[in-house]
Computed example of a mutant assay.
Amino acid sequence: MSEKDITKRSRRGSGAITLRDVARLAGVSPITASRALNTPDQVAAETRQKVLDAVQRTGYVPNRMAGGLASSRSRLIAAVVPSTVMSVFMETIEALNGTLFDAGYQLMLGQSGYSPHREELLLEAIIGRRPDGIFLTGIMQQGKGRTRLLASGIPVVETWDLTPTPIDMLVGFSHLEIGHEVAHFFIGRGRRRLGIVQANDERANRRSRAFAEVVGQSGLADVSIVNVGASRSIKSGREALGRLLAADPDVDAIFCSSDLLALGVMTEARARNIPIPGQIAIMGFGDVPFVADMVPSLSTVHINGANIGKLAARCLIDRADDRSVDQRVVDVGFSIVERETTD
């Protein structure tokens, strides 16, 4: 059964891939399929392999709440976020939780640590518990995780990104447009040697590529990029500035993939007696609450995270309550907040 076939099924109720579907595809009875998954020693190895192949093809995840009534509601919404520690996602999570709670739903939260493998494991566990909806931070790429979500029949809302092909519903913004706009911002203020300090994740990579594209089209020197890997700490921001200056001593503007990395860059610049923004202008991403009160205050890209949380919650509640959602894709946009770290 292909992903295209799965998407034709209803998103709730009988639309979910069932054990009976797996059994039919494997050419065995439902009870044999159940035994192959739950008590594999009771079936022949060849039969078990047929069932496992069918599970792989359909994305089926066993329902660990199958003992309850098929029509029962969990009143539970599951969310997968990269991190909650000093995170740009905090406002989104708080608004999501508050809106769900007021509507009689509870939020179950899982942290992926920006790891696609960990995210996939979390999703398998979540789907098996059959929540009434699933909230994702980012876009689910092609693969087993996406197939399983489609097969589950559970309402899904992807957030903090944009794509023309969401799994179900989407509330987000364009990282490409952010990269473009920040590059134009620096260039419009006379900055000519531009650099990037970024963590290694897909959304940051897209912002960086878009940023570098605009710089290249403007005929300026190539963008110097320092990737700090999985680290998003003040320490990694400080180390990144040292690496960036070694690669390009004349860098005069830096776009950081998070406000925390920007704080690290600022700290190292002050330790080296580098004037901000006189010698180097700095832009962060996320507009977390403390950056407006820093000295100097940090220019950054503002995302209305609370609005994302509220809109995503309303989408999931409406679908869980069998109401239609007219606007399946919502672009909340972004804004550049200019403070003291830029001219």
Score class of each variant (00 low, 15 high):
Ile77Met: 13
Gln327Pro: 02
Ser10Asp: 11
Ala78Cys: 03
Arg192Gln: 10
Pro62Arg: 09
Gly133Phe: 06
Gly195Asp: 04
Pro249Gly: 05
Met283Thr: 07
Val325Cys: 07
Ala262Trp: 09
Cys256Asn: 14
Arg314Pro: 07
Ser257Ile: 05
Thr163Gly: 09
Ser258Cys: 00
His180Ile: 07
Glu91Trp: 06
Asp259Trp: 14
Arg11Val: 02
Thr92Gly: 03
Asp132Ala: 13
Thr137His: 08
Asn227Gly: 03
Ile234His: 02
Asp41Ala: 12
Arg191Val: 02
Ser112Thr: 04
Arg57Gln: 12
Glu202Leu: 15
Gly309Ala: 08
Asp201Glu: 00
Thr58Leu: 15
Val301Phe: 01
Pro40Thr: 02
Ile254Trp: 03
Asp343Val: 02
Asn200Ser: 09
Ile274Pro: 00
Phe290Asp: 11
Ala44Ile: 09
Ser83Ala: 08
His180Thr: 11
Leu162Tyr: 13
Gly188Thr: 09
Ile282Phe: 05
Glu177Phe: 00
Gln217Thr: 05
Thr18Gln: 09
Arg146Ile: 09
Gly110Glu: 07
Gly305Cys: 14
Asp132Val: 11
Met169Val: 01
Ala36Asn: 06
Asn227Thr: 11
Val81Arg: 05
Asn205Ile: 01
Ala262Asp: 09
Asp102Ala: 14
Ala66Lys: 13
Ile93Trp: 04
Gln106Phe: 15
Gly59Tyr: 10
Gln327Cys: 08
Pro277Glu: 01
Ile276Thr: 07
Leu25Ser: 05
Asp161Phe: 02
Ser14Thr: 13
Asp343Thr: 01
Ser71Val: 09
Gly172Lys: 10
Ile139Thr: 06
Met108Gln: 04
Leu96Tyr: 00
Leu150Phe: 12
Ala23Met: 14
Leu170His: 00
Val332Ala: 10
Ile308Val: 15
Ile154Leu: 07
Leu245Trp: 14
Glu239Gln: 13
Gly133Pro: 00
Thr163Val: 15
Ile336Gln: 08
Ile280Glu: 00
Asp321Trp: 04
Ser29His: 13
Gly145Phe: 00
